[in-house]
Design a protein around this nucleic acid. Structure first.
Lengths: 364, 364
DNA sequence: GGTGCCCTGGCAAGCGGTTGCCAGACGGTG
DNA sequence: CACCGTCTGGCAACCGCTTGCCAGGGCACC
């Protein structure tokens, strides 16, 4: 095939694998010990004489031996795999969570299994089950999953829920009330008196938390809050809110998430609004794109990687037999990232609010 | 705990699991058949009498039986898992690839294992090995992986390489030359005569392909091409190119990827350039953020999901014993998405090119 | 010198499925 | 009625690794 003298092609294995992958039996035979000794040489460091272990290890690597994960999982019941279930793999919100989970899992010697929960309505249950049943534990980062499905999963494996508080299940969430207070403080400091919340899906746990937190934060400072929506938690959803917002006496909008905030910004700009002079917009989550749009979005950045990391840590404690510890959710502090989408409010009723777009009388 | 009369809480299982998860032995006993019959009832549809199979299935579901994946994998050697190895999970470029692979894998009854290849320089080999050895096949979507590592992996599992052409290994790539021709045609149509390529990492296979394709496409039309870089394939990398580009007589830039294009756009705008009147910018890849920046980025969108899907299809053929078919890579057509970042070139030397920024005489 | 403990390594019984082979039942043929 | 093929279901031998238990050797201590 290739030039046999090519140094890059020289076999790294002294003993070419004959047929199938070598097993502990092959190693045992080659090293002149029993298979159980080989097994222990890898699994129980101190259990075997150091010299013997070293010899075995050498022989094993010469043979190119790799433990068969399935065979190891069978007697022990541990697969060294963690399942991460997200609502939508392609949603940028999950990118950093995936990253955090991945890094933490790897560091702990686990492999990550990734599953989309809502991609296929039909086989979802089935898919989930398969992923879950081959993992030692599950990190659930999906708002849409039903309580029933969650209970089923929690019944078979250690589970940590990310980004939602579920009673009786360990949870890791961003401290949204805190983030909201920061956002409101920021807007108040700029001089805004009335803040509109651009609501996401009502089914979302975080949506309720954020709205409540806004109401509370606004009350503390004697400001006003009002709510618009719900809209889909997407760019288009945010854009769809522009006409309705135009009819409202508000100078500042806090959106359910960055995607909506971005959609809103773009739609307002398209209507001729000057941003951020006429409207300040704040997002939630801190996705990559938030820093790239114009004006760059001020956002309450959730500590996504830390959340992933923490979730894995908690999960591994559970896997290793820690008590379920059904306390309150672990709250990680978000960080308000101030960018260009927020500024002092303009004096007068902005032009865009009454622009030529034929807006129907605001619904909702 | 909860109200026992709550219908949602009624036990779905007639036989509560006693201790551990039920096995085929439990099902066999309950159904009055042999374990092998239970196994066949699930694995060999026609092999068992239809009535018997139905009864077994009923009993199994009543018991809440789920096959143990490890136990199944041990004798068959098939884990029903596919590994996807990417360079950086959080890079938006991979989002849609992950999505495509995930969907295709799920549809085929496989579970997806996700691994970051370059996150940890140290244990990388180890991590990779573990992921790979518990999957039936591997989709490699990482430009940085060494040829040696690739060969090692290819030696143990069916492998499909995504987004790079490697001789002797089945590959799925975007048809960059075609995309480049479209981009050049678009720019030429707008009246641009000289196109600058903003180069990404030299180690990247795609970078070479894109540059060569640009040279070729430009030659066909009698235009000029020049090259700037290399720069890191990131937003900052693209931004870093702005000063150098300012010194060049070019009205159009095609960047190695969208992130760089976005960085460039932002940096140029920050220097006071009016876009797209003064410079047209085209990206590659078609990531989400490309459509969100201002001006929205014209880009050669790779068919990322289709690539993921195709890679999985090819891989599964291999897994199911198809011949390696070491032909040329499968090329999937990208699509030029025309947005606002490209326009007719301005008449005169743009102001920003000689702006107040103290540019050193262009290097490279 | 005897006793008991520790260290080391081997034996063998699983873990939960899969599957080749066999045997009994049954029905159709000659 | 004997014979044979097909259909069903059971038996048992794996797949590769883990681990409880045991045994022999070496050593220390009494």
């Amino acid at each position: 095939m290739t030039d046999p003298t090519d140094p890059a092609e020289s076999r790294p294995r002294t003993e070419p694998v004959a047929g199938r992958a070598p097993t502990i039996y092959d190693v045992a035979r080659a090293a002149g010990v029993a298979p159980s000794t080989v097994s222990r040489a890898f699994a129980r460091p101190g259990r075997i004489n150091a010299d013997t272990a070293e010899r075995i290890r050498r022989v094993a690597s010469a043979l190119g031996y790799r433990a068969n994960p399935s065979a190891r999982a069978l007697p022990t019941g541990r697969t060294s795999m963690l399942a991460l279930v997200v609502a939508d793999v392609a949603n940028p919100f999950y990118s950093d969570i995936i990253r955090g989970v991945q890094v933490a899992a790897t560091a702990a010697g686990y492999t990550m299994l990734l599953t989309d929960a809502e991609q296929s309505a039909a086989g979802e249950r089935e898919v989930l089950d398969r992923a879950v049943s081959s993992a030692d534990g599950v990190v659930l980062a999906t708002s849409g999953i039903s309580g029933a499905a969650l209970r089923v999963i929690a019944g078979q494996r250690p589970v940590v829920v990310l980004n939602r508080a579920v009673p009786g299940v360990p949870c890791v969430v961003s401290d949204d009330p805190r983030g909201m207070r920061q956002a409101v403080a920021h807007l108040a400091g700029l001089g805004h008196r009335r803040i509109t919340y651009l609501a996401g899906p009502q089914a979302s746990w975080a949506d309720g938390v954020r709205w409540d937190a806004l109401v509370e934060a606004v009350r503390e400072r004697g400001l006003d809050a009002c709510r618009s929506g719900p809209y889909p938690p997407t760019v288009d959803g945010g854009a769809a809110a522009a006409p309705e917002l135009a009819g409202r006496p508000t100078t500042a909008v806090i959106a359910y998430n960055d995607l909506m905030a971005i959609g809103l910004i773009r739609a307002l700009a398209a209507r001729g609004a000057r941003l951020p002079e006429e409207v300040s917009v704040v997002g939630f989550d801190g996705i990559l794109a938030a820093g790239l749009v114009t004006p760059a979005l001020t956002t309450v950045a959730a500590p996504l990687r830390a959340m992933g990391r923490t979730a894995v840590g908690t999960l591994l404690d559970l896997v290793h037999g820690a008590p379920p510890a059904a306390g309150p959710p672990v709250r990680l502090p978000p960080e308000l990232v101030v960018r260009a989408s927020t500024a002092r409010p303009g004096r007068s009723r902005p032009a865009w609010a009454t622009a030529s777009v034929p807006t129907s009388a605001g619904t909702g």
